[in-house]
Design a protein around this nucleic acid. Structure first.
Length: 298
DNA sequence: TAAACGCGTTGGAGGAGGCG
DNA sequence: CGCCTCCTCCAACGCGTTTA
């Protein structure tokens, strides 16, 4: 009885529990639909004329560390609408808990989709086995593809940069919507013409954040002459950092004079400071040796 | 090492026929 | 008329192999 109460709380809405038992491979929940009628997928009319019943076996979310399969006592209905081409159909479930042809419940399919999306095929398959939801790498990738790409919202503020398909071998271009904070396109290479062609299809773009190289700047200038071009945050910081270091490096003599040169006495340093100082002395000796040998033609 | 591909297997969907 | 069995078709799946 306690099993019955527990399982009844876990089955999807629209189904009634028939049986619940343990098997050699996990848990098995037998359910039947509670609705009296079903909607013909062809003409949309409702019917209560049952043609036959059969059993469908569906994978479901694991329970208490055990794989769960749902045995659904599915019905086939007759469509009696005269002009309708379909005469017999398997009942559809309105809340989408079980889709036609599905071998998993919708809630398990959602888990499979997110695993595939987050980890890829094989890593997700290994993880899924540990989650007691064994699926193949192919199925995980199919689940991701089946749901297709997310909708495309024309961007207004974008960031563009190159990225490596394989480092030092092949590079592509990544474009991000900076308002949505999401990557929106991967281009196959980093050629200006490729980026320019993509820009041409997006005349609504108002701001292009890019690197310091000339390629993307040229592509944006040609395709989007009215768009503002700005250095992206990373390259801005890189520029500022480099300019600061150059300014400091060129002014070290007056800076040392201003703060007063100090002679370091190692005996007065802490252990950590002494290690740091000794490393500095070693590097200076190495650099001096290299300069001397180079000057002598080595 | 992971993704893609080809292919065989499994089982869900739809229809025909038959029985009570 | 309700519902069962049986059959065919094909979507979903997993496995072995190839490709990157």
């Amino acid at each position: 009885m306690s099993h019955r109460i527990c399982a009844a709380a876990l089955i999807p809405s629209g189904f009634a529990l028939e049986q619940f038992h343990r098997t050699d491979t996990g848990l098995e929940i037998v359910v039947r639909p509670t609705g009296k009628t079903s909607i013909c997928p062809e003409c949309g009319s409702s019917t209560s004329r049952v043609h036959s019943r059969y059993r469908r076996r569906l994978g479901d979310l694991p329970l208490a560390g055990r794989p769960v399969s749902v045995v659904l006592i599915a019905r086939r209905f007759r469509c009696s609408t005269i002009p309708c081409q379909r005469r017999i159909f398997t009942e559809r479930f309105e809340d989408g808990a079980v889709l036609p042809w599905a071998r998993r419940t919708a809630r398990l399919d959602l888990l499979v989709y997110h695993l595939g999306l987050a980890l890829g095929g094989r890593p997700a398959a290994r993880f899924a086995h540990r989650l007691m939801t064994p699926v193949s790498n192919d199925t995980l990738l199919r689940a991701v593809r089946r749901r297709g790409r997310p909708g495309f919202t024309p961007p207004h503020v974008i960031g563009i940069d190159d990225w490596a398909w394989r480092r030092n071998h092949r590079y592509g271009t990544i474009i991000c919507d900076l308002e949505l904070r999401q990557p929106i396109r991967l281009l196959p290479d980093r050629e200006p013409a490729t980026a320019q062609a993509w820009f041409m299809d997006q005349p609504q773009i108002a701001v292009v954040a890019r690197d310091r190289g000339g390629a993307y700047a040229l592509a944006a200038a040609r395709a989007l002459p009215d768009a503002a071009q700005v250095a992206d945050r990373w390259h801005l910081m890189e520029n500022a950092s480099r300019a600061f270091l150059e300014a400091i490096r060129g002014s070290m003599r007056p800076i040392r004079a201003a703060i007063g040169a100090t002679v370091i006495n190692p005996a007065l340093l802490s252990a950590a400071e002494r290690l740091q100082y000794e490393g500095y002395v070693r590097r200076e000796e190495t650099a001096t040796t290299i300069r001397r040998r180079r000057a002598s033609g080595a």
